[in-house]
Simulated assay, not measured.
Amino acid sequence: MISLYKIKNIKHKRVLIFGFVCVCFVLFFLYQNKHLVVDNFIVQSEKISGDLDGFKIVQISDFHNAYFGRDNDKLIAIIKNQNPDIVVITGDLVDSNHTNINRALEFAQTVQEICPTYYVTGNHEYWLDEKDLDILLSGLRDSGITILENECVNIYKGDSSFTLVGLDDRNLSDNTLTNILQDYKSEFTVVLAHEPQYITNYSGEKVDLVLSGHAHGGQFRLPFMGGVVAPGQGFNPQYTEGEYKMKDTTMIVSRGLGNSIIPVRLFNYPEIVCVELKQG
């Protein structure tokens, strides 16, 4: 017959084991969501020449009010270490479900101090109420960040340049890109567009490079399957991370940094994208 002491001892061990397993799960998911990685891409083109050879673009996408260290110092240090010529923020700097505009602005302002920074909206910006959106955009402008609202700018390095186009998230699937580019000629064109599923639109204009995000890497990445689900693409999404080519267009999709409706990632580390332009 099992004594009362032994029964209590067994229960105590079970509680300890259960607690240990819970702690392991928490640490595992924290690591999955906070382990920053840098993925480097080289984009070669005959259109890239002179001082543009070796030009570095760091892409930040889907920040969603995330934090990586105190005041995001860990994230900022990694960005600095890439020695970028410019930084581009491709939407969802804030999260409409747990909005923290101050955190977004503090991060953006610190990035702007590293190098010139360019920004386009994502869907979460337009899910904010009008007052919060105005505070965000005004704060970004006051920080010296260039907001590209369906417009383009020339990016210079030495005697060479390329065209940087920023698409508003509300105009990814219409004729806006066509209208922007119809009278604008450039040797090399880079488009910032938050959502990747409109690649047919982008490639139809024969742009050279598209930097996108939105898909969160498919949220959960499984062996032999890749990303599980992405906004705008549903289950088994096609464009979730990395490099895609269509016609003469290369599209790079960032897995992003933060989370939103689904609060955790699995085998899908937060990502900083670094693109180096090379003469080819």
Results as ranks from 00 to 15, higher is better:
171 N>K: 13
254 S>H: 09
128 L>I: 08
99 T>Q: 02
186 S>K: 02
81 N>E: 15
163 T>G: 04
57 I>D: 00
238 Q>S: 11
109 Q>Y: 07
190 V>K: 00
116 P>D: 07
222 L>R: 06
197 Q>D: 11
251 M>K: 03
52 L>T: 03
119 Y>T: 00
98 H>F: 14
61 S>H: 07
127 W>S: 11
58 V>R: 00
231 P>F: 04
66 A>T: 14
188 F>M: 06
224 F>G: 00
121 T>I: 08
24 C>W: 06
139 G>F: 10
133 L>Q: 14
83 N>T: 11
48 I>S: 05
82 Q>C: 13
195 E>I: 08
238 Q>T: 12
274 C>D: 09
18 F>D: 00
8 K>A: 14
231 P>L: 05
213 G>W: 04
267 F>H: 12
44 Q>H: 13
86 I>P: 05
39 D>W: 03
40 N>T: 13
146 T>E: 12
258 G>S: 05
230 A>Y: 05
260 S>P: 04
152 C>V: 01
217 G>W: 05
19 G>E: 07
280 G>V: 08
231 P>I: 01
214 H>Q: 10
108 A>S: 15
8 K>S: 13
77 A>Y: 03
253 V>N: 09
266 L>G: 04
239 Y>K: 03
232 G>T: 11
244 Y>M: 09
68 F>S: 08
227 G>Y: 09
68 F>W: 08
36 L>I: 09
174 D>H: 01
239 Y>F: 15
199 I>H: 10
27 L>Q: 06
151 E>Y: 06
195 E>M: 13
136 L>G: 10
139 G>W: 02
137 L>K: 15
120 V>C: 03
216 H>T: 05
15 V>Y: 14
190 V>C: 01
233 Q>R: 04
207 V>I: 11
238 Q>H: 10
81 N>F: 00
234 G>Q: 09
106 E>M: 08
257 L>V: 08
241 E>L: 09
45 S>L: 11
194 H>K: 03
254 S>G: 10
206 K>T: 06
109 Q>L: 05
57 I>F: 02
140 L>I: 03
7 I>T: 13
126 Y>V: 08
88 V>C: 02
62 D>S: 07
18 F>R: 09
111 V>W: 01
251 M>N: 04
274 C>T: 12
23 V>Y: 12
2 I>L: 14
85 D>G: 07
278 K>H: 09
232 G>S: 08
154 N>A: 10
217 G>I: 07
106 E>R: 12
94 V>Y: 04
267 F>E: 09
90 T>P: 08
82 Q>A: 13
232 G>C: 12
263 P>I: 06
212 S>A: 15
173 S>L: 11
177 L>A: 08
268 N>G: 07
137 L>H: 11
7 I>K: 15
174 D>T: 04
